[in-house]
Amino acid sequence: MPTRIHPLLIAFTVVVYLFLLGPLIIIFGASLSDTTYLTFPPQGLSLRWFENIWEISAFRRTIVTSLQMAFLGTLIALIIGIPAAYALNRHRVSLPAWLSTLFVLPILVPEMVIGFSLLRSVTVQMGVPVWYALLIGHTLLVIPYVIRVVSASLASFDFSVEEAAISLGSHPAKTFFTIVLPNIRSGVIAAFILSFITSINDVSVSLFLTGPGISTLPIQLLAHMEQFFDPTIASVSVVLMMLTIVVMIIVERTLGLAVVAK
C-alpha cells in the first residue's frame, strides 16, 4: 500500500514486537545459565539444565502422557470430526441449524468449566480411569478446531466431482476416500497441527483431570514452579519453543502459515 506511515506508529510497532519477543529471548538465555537459580544474562554457559529435563522422571513421564493425549485426542477428533464437517457441508439442508452451534460449544464453554464438569461426572460419578478421562477432555477440546478447519477446506471443494464419480458407479464411501479426502488433505493436516498444539499447551482442562501418577507436561511445569525456581523450567520452555518452530516450518513448507493465522 502506497500510503506513508507516520514514524511514531512504526516506532510503536517496533516496541510492541520487542515486548512480544524479548521475554522469549530471555527464557532462551536463562536456560543456558550454569547457575542453580534463574538469571539473565546467563552466567557461564552450560547445557546441564537440558540434561536435567530427562533426569527428572516426572518430566519424562508427563512428556510421554502429553504426546499421547495430543496424538490420540487429535486422531479421535479427526475420525469423528471429518464426517461431521462433511455432513455439515454436504447435507446442510437436512440437518438442524443448532448442530453447528453444538459443535462450537467446546470452545464457547470456558475450559475450566468443562474440566470441572468432566471431573465430577466422568472421573468421579462414572469412575473412568484418569488416563481415559484426560483423553476425553483433550478430544473434546480439539473437536471444534477439526470441524472448523476441515469445513473451511470442504467449502472450497467442488462436490460435482464427487457426484460425477458416484454417477459413474463408484461407491459413495470409496468415493470419499479416493476423491474427497485427497482434495481436502491440506485442511486435514492444518486441523491436525492446530489441534495438536492446542492439546499440548492445554492447562485448564487437564488441571482437573490429572490424577495420581498421571499428569501432562504443562501441569507438571506448574507443579515444579511451585517448588523450584531453577533453570529447568526455562530449558523445558526452550524445548517447547523449538518444537513450535519445527511445527511452524512444517506448516510453512506444506500449507503456508496463513492457515494458522486464520
Binding site: 514486537y17 512480544l20 519477543l21 521475554p23 522469549l24 530471555i26 527464557i27 498444539i197 499440548i200 499447551n201 492447562v203 504443562p218 511445569l221 506448574l222 514452579m225 523450567i233 526455562a234 520452555s237 517447547l240 519453543m241 513450535t244 518452530i245 511445527v247 511452524m248 502459515l257 494458522v260 493465522a261
Partner: peptide, 16 residues
C-alpha cells in the same frame, strides 16, 4: 513473529 508467541504455551509465556 506474531504467530510464534501464539503457538507457545501460556505456561511458558507466563513463566517469562
Amino acid at each position: 513473529l506474531a504467530v510464534f508467541p501464539l503457538l507457545t504455551g501460556v505456561i511458558v509465556r507466563s513463566f517469562a
